[in-house]
């Protein structure tokens, strides 16, 4: 684990997301932030416990925090991009104040607004792990490479959080797009969370 951004490998978001999904054996919740963060979650293989955002940029962490508060026994992940986090940086203070033990934040930092054409974010000189730590999230660190990302995931799944795992990304785009049907996304997620139980057709 690294507290600085020196010598961090730039990794492929779809590969990291696939590695994450492969480790989920306990019906963990995963909230995919807008754009490519949730596209690759979808492409990694749909699970009923996945929620895919459409809009509300910056709210992946708050949504995940709400899930984590409602179901303290379920590990809950937020997959958020650096541009999205910049929209709602203050939420890190709220997470630190409430400190939900089952919340795991994964930051995908490619330094750009990839979905709108690759414009650099204003966070060019920002270190998001340092920001998270300064907000009070002691378990915040960068993943130096894929093997370390997996070790950090294992640790986050096995220990109390909140955890914050920073990942520097390469410039590769997403595999595919998520199906945009918000009412269906919500309904499937609620069944995945066990809050809707009646049988559905099909």
């Amino acid at each position: 684990m690294s507290e600085t951004t020196h010598n961090l490998k730039r990794m492929y978001r779809f590969d990291l997301t696939t590695r994450l999904v492969a480790k989920l054996k306990q019906e963990e919740a995963v909230i995919g932030g807008i754009g490519h963060s949730n596209f690759d979650l979808w492409s990694a293989g749909h699970r009923p416990q996945n929620f895919y955002m459409l809009g509300s940029m910056g709210l992946a962490i708050p949504i995940a925090m709400g899930v984590a508060l409602a179901q303290p026994a379920r590990k809950t992940f937020a997959l958020e991009g650096d541009g999205s986090l910049l929209m709602e940086l203050g939420c890190l203070t709220t997470v630190a104040a409430q400190a939900p033990k089952n919340l795991i934040i994964i930051l995908f930092d490619n330094g750009i607004y990839q979905i709108t054409g690759g414009q650099p974010t204003p966070g060019l000189h920002a270190d998001y792990v340092a920001i998270a730590r300064a907000c009070g999230l002691a378990n915040a660190a960068w993943a130096a490479d894929e093997a370390e990302f997996e070790r950090m995931l294992d640790n986050a799944l096995a220990t109390d959080g909140p955890h914050f795992i920073g990942c520097k990304l390469d410039s590769q785009g997403p595999k595919a797009q998520t199906e945009r049907d918000p009412a269906q996304i919500r309904d499937r997620f609620m069944r995945g969370m066990g809050t809707k139980k009646n049988r559905t057709l099909g």
Binding site: L59, P62, M65, G66, A70, F189
Partner: peptide
């Protein structure tokens, strides 16, 4: 929103 979907 997250809390409601998860039952709170």
């Amino acid at each position: 929103s997250g809390a409601w979907m998860a039952g709170l």
